[in-house]
Amino acid sequence: MATSIGPVLNVTRRELSGYFSTPVAWVFIVIFLVMSGVFTFYIGSFYERGIADLEPFFQFHPWLYLFLVPAIGMRLWAEERRSGTVELLLTLPLTAWQAVVGKFLAAWFFVGAALLLTFPVWLTVNYLGQPDNGVILAGYLGSWLMAGGFLAIASCMSAVTRNQVVAFILSVVVCFGFLLSGLPMVMNLFSGWAPQALLDAIASFSFLAHFADISRGVIDLRDLVYFALVITVWLLANTIVLELKKAD
């Protein structure tokens, strides 16, 4: 599957320009910033803890993404199919894989930009104390990677249907599964009867576990590979679903 980057970036560029000409992008950014502020400073007891780090900030990201990323991802392919532009796009001389990656990258960069706009939180913690900025950087990286995982799932789900609401719900459900696998309450369902290998496999699928590692400042190659794999596999699935469903 040769991926020459030119056509991919052309698609990315077109998508991004679309984001900012509709209110969706601005609404997303505002909600994201407000919510991360609320979570960090009120629910996360940022001040009361008296520790200069961003753990309360990052700790809520998985839950924030659970709803916000499917909201960004739901239109990726559902909208192309509804409006018929998918026929235009996929009869241009580029492969479905290039189109899928191009659109994914646009959404991922966009989420990255929203994430960068949370810099006042970082300024605040640096003003108040002496945090380990290396750990914070790792937290940002982990958060962005995790958003990519969610987004790849949402992109694939949005190719399943031309209805954005259905795409949203499907994405949330699948993302929720990936988020929860590995939590004790899920593992308890399996432990006792399932073989240990399966338990380990399920636990190792968890976004939370891998994200927790990175956001503690431990950048382990395995965690990076994990997210890269999740993204790749879901985008491949996205390409296959698209090829199957594009004509319906």
């Binding site: 320009s17 409006s83 532009t85 026929e87 235009l88």
Partner: peptide
């Protein structure tokens, strides 16, 4: 060169 039925295009552009 292809003009699909209904001439779809990206409306926001």
């Amino acid at each position: 060169g292809y003009l699909p039925e209904g001439a779809p295009s990206y409306g926001e552009m």
